[in-house]
Design a protein around this nucleic acid. Structure first.
Length: 799
DNA sequence: GGACATTGTCATATC
DNA sequence: CTGATATGACAATGT
């Protein structure tokens, strides 16, 4: 459990850092300051072994004696301060809050009304929520493995288990101070909650709503705090819902997504993951034919209903599939990535191709539908009869319904469409479709062209940036993947492995987690292997590294800390020197990680080389110090040079010999009358001492280099996996488009009649698409002969 | 007892 | 050139 929390913590911190880098304000202080038990435990960990600060501090101040290194108070204090300062150190990176929901809303050309909602912190909070949630889900599995150990560290004593039920989380969240939430937002959130409950959502999921109302009646001066807590509650609830929808809306469905968007997009900031899920669900790949009926039914309920699972009648409290969630997240993110890129292309092309035709009926329908799907228009505008698919596929599939919808085809509405198709004059030839120019077929009819196009050029930017932030998603996805894939067996396995005190092994920890994670991480068949390997490696690496540090720290803490262990700690301390910024004693501790700054100790004469043996040896030595006279301990601790120096009656410490600058060193030698033998020994001591430190630094650098290379390999593997997934998505989209083109072809061909009103034989004639966008009916014999020069028989250049 | 890891030391190169 | 530092190689020690 300890390692799990360590992992969660690091993941969260990394995520926080990334969020800060992209301008999303992250405020973990509220969580930490208010001692939200589950999250606090996740972040801070229950044990002093988590932080590397305690033992150093003990060593510096008390030299490791007298205070139990596992002291809960010390735990709490140092861990909290450490993390707080770590987060605060991000201040300089903070940028104005980014409204993720705006990114989403602006995505749709037809979405004119953008949702102005809460800003960034929701991401962190959502992330925290997800952590909590996962923690909850895992807690049941972990309790048997020792989750009860956390109870000791619950400061308030109100938690009987390490993993707290969602209600507890909410309860804590209610007490927390969070970012501001306007009164209107709060009210609307309440409304949404009530609707959720009215719609049949599991009461247990929304239990916080009652507290919400309670808190609402709280003191006025606590309004912000209440709002913050409420928002967190709501977010947590949303997270559950989002996971539910994620679980059930897997690209094959997605009916309820517009509802979700309606509420989410309009009212709140969404976590990035939620946004992505919603985006993906809003832009399913060509599934419109499946939802034509279901979507209308799913929207028969209140316009502002927000829970897809509720509207679908799915059990809201259904256990979240631990194996599916990360997959879906990953998958959906990849989908969005691919969609957005496709949309970028589409946007450009649309601007060129939208030139004619305004079918008012289609126009209105499309407008309303799009608005509905994006949930940004007033709820009154939601058309319950709207087919979701028509509005939800701006990239690959959105345009096809208007072209392929049987209703349209059967009416006169098809004619303008086809005419436009034939007249569309794109010069782009998609090689995927051969030389035939089908580009025009894929562009949206100029419905709402005037209004949509005005917003269209703006669209790609936020999403381009979002694309560039894919690493953010990687982190979260990796975290989730690890969370989900981290079974009890794996945890115990890791724990065993880490307890083996194998030191810093780069790869040893990969193997245990990888296989099982692979099972849960792979999403697409083509890229499953690489993806899973990436995820598992990533997670395992981070986990093992941190846990190693924690293990070492625990050991060091018990021993009192010694320099030679630096190599094991260098990853954490070296990479984040500002970790303890603001805490003087911890800063000094942090600096002590440098070999060039040997510590001063009561046994200063022996301090430099006192750490001459391994950890276990020092353990024994510590044991001995409590049982034996100090002189004996000194004898055992001293190095050869120390002993030689004492034997030669060197009048100053080896530390001085080694670390004094040349001038001072020479002065020191000059001050004392030393014989040649002593001088030689002193110089040797200085040389060896410096070389020892140099060797240590050298090894550290070597290790860092190796680790950096390792990280680079992992990054590249991750990129590779991501690109493979994107490729798969593109291929999938292209396949769907091909199918739709084929369908259109068949429909058009079936409607063609010759002079006598008879249909053409498909075996004798075929439609050809001219380079100018025209559609020509040609005999198949000519088709084979002339290939792509169908200019002879322009019988039906229609539509 | 052997394999392995860690650390110190030396020799040498480099700054 | 000297001193400091870096680094490969080896040995000692512990696990």
């Amino acid at each position: 459990m300890l390692y799990l929390k360590k992992y969660f913590t690091e993941g969260l911190i990394q995520f926080t850092i990334l969020l800060s880098l992209i301008g999303v304000r992250v405020d973990l202080d509220t969580y930490l300051n208010n001692q939200l038990p589950p999250l606090r435990e996740i972040i801070l960990g229950p044990s002093s072994a988590y932080t590397q600060t305690q033992f150093h501090n003990l060593r510096n101040t008390l030299d490791g004696y007298g205070i139990h290194p596992k002291s809960v108070d010390l735990d709490h204090f140092f861990a909290t301060r450490r993390l707080l300062n770590q987060v605060r150190s991000l201040d300089h990176l903070r940028l104005p809050s980014t409204e993720l929901s705006a990114w989403l809303v602006h995505r749709d050309p037809e979405t004119v009304v953008s949702a102005t909602s809460q800003s960034g912190p929701s991401i962190a909070l959502d992330n925290g929520g997800s952590l909590e949630d996962v923690n909850n889900s895992e807690a049941s599995a972990m309790r048997g493995a020792g989750g009860a150990t956390e109870t000791t560290y619950s400061p308030s004593g109100e938690d009987s288990l390490g993993a707290v039920a969602p209600e507890d989380i909410q309860e804590q969240a209610d007490r927390e101070t969070s970012d501001d939430l306007s009164k209107e937002d709060i009210d609307l959130i309440d409304i949404l909650w009530r609707q959720d409950i009215d719609l049949g959502a599991g009461r247990e999921v929304f239990n916080y709503s009652s507290r919400q109302k309670d808190s609402k009646a709280g003191k006025p001066n606590e309004e912000n705090e209440e709002a913050g807590g409420r928002e967190e509650n709501w977010r947590n609830g949303l997270y559950l819902q989002a996971v539910q929808s994620l679980t059930h809306v897997d690209g094959e469905t997605g009916e309820s997504i517009p509802e979700e968007l309606t509420s989410l997009g309009a009212q709140t900031s969404l976590s990035l993951q939620e946004c992505l899920r919603l985006l993906e669900a809003t832009f399913p790949f060509g599934e419109e034919s499946e939802f034509q009926n279901s979507s209308s039914t799913s929207q028969l309920t209140a316009p502002t209903e927000e829970t897809p699972s509720t509207s679908q009648g799915l059990p809201i409290q259904a256990p979240i599939s631990q194996s599916d969630t990360p997959l879906d997240l990953e998958q959906q993110w990849q989908d969005i990535m691919s969609i957005m890129e496709l949309q970028d292309m589409e946007v450009n092309n649309t601007a060129v191709n939208v030139t004619t035709n305004n079918d008012s009926n289609n126009n209105n329908a499309s407008t309303t539908e799009s608005a509905t799907s994006f949930g940004v228009l007033p709820s009154s505008l939601i058309n319950q009869d709207v087919s979701l698919h028509q509005a939800s596929l701006p990239s690959c599939s959105q345009d096809f319904p208007t072209l392929f919808n049987p209703e349209l085809d059967s009416t006169e509405g098809q004619r303008p469409t086809l005419v436009r198709l034939s007249s569309s004059n794109s010069s782009n030839i998609n090689s995927t479709f051969g030389t035939t120019n089908l580009t025009g077929l894929f562009y949206t009819p100029p419905l709402n062209s005037s209004t949509n196009l005005s917003t269209t050029p703006v669209l790609p930017d936020p999403f381009t940036s979002l694309l560039e932030e894919s690493m953010l998603d990687e982190i979260s996805l990796l975290d989730l993947a690890m969370e989900e894939g981290f079974s009890q067996a794996q945890a115990s396995q890791l724990e065993d492995e880490l307890d083996s005190d194998s030191g810093l092994s780069l790869d040893s920890s990969h193997s245990p987690a990888s296989p099982s994670n692979s099972e849960t991480s792979c999403s697409s068949a083509a890229s499953s292997s690489s993806t899973s390997a990436t995820f598992s490696e990533e997670g395992a690496v981070g986990y093992s590294t941190d846990s190693e540090a924690a293990t070492v720290e625990a050991e060091e803490g018990a021993v009192g800390g010694c320099q030679p262990e630096y190599s094991k700690l260098c990853r954490m301390s070296y990479q984040d020197p500002s970790q303890f910024h603001g805490i003087p004693q911890l800063e000094s501790v942090n600096h002590n990680h440098t070999y060039n700054l040997p510590l001063a100790s009561p046994y200063s004469e022996h301090s430099q080389l006192s750490a001459s043996s391994s950890k276990k040896g020092r353990d024994k030595q510590i044991q001995q110090t409590k049982l034996q006279p100090p002189q004996d301990f000194i004898d055992r601790q001293t190095s050869r040079d120390e002993r030689r120096a004492r034997a030669m009656d060197i009048p100053f410490s080896n530390e001085k010999i080694i670390n004094l600058p040349v001038e001072e060193f020479n002065e020191l030698l000059a001050k004392h009358n030393l014989n040649e033998e002593q001088l030689s020994l002193i110089r040797d001591i200085r040389r060896r001492g410096k070389n020892k430190m140099a060797a240590q630094n050298c090894r550290k650098r070597k290790l860092d280099t190796i680790l950096n290379l390792e990280q680079g390999v992992q990054d590249m593997r991750r990129d590779k996996a991501r690109l493979l997934k994107e490729r798969m998505e593109f291929i999938k989209c292209i396949r769907q488009m091909k199918q739709k083109v084929q369908n259109l072809y068949q429909e058009v061909f079936a409607q063609l009649r010759d002079e006598e009103g008879r249909p053409y034989s498909a075996s004798e004639y075929s439609l050809q698409y001219g380079p100018d966008g025209s559609v020509l009916l040609m005999p198949r014999s000519m088709t084979t002969e002339q290939g792509h020069k169908p200019e002879k028989k322009q019988k039906d250049k229609k539509k």
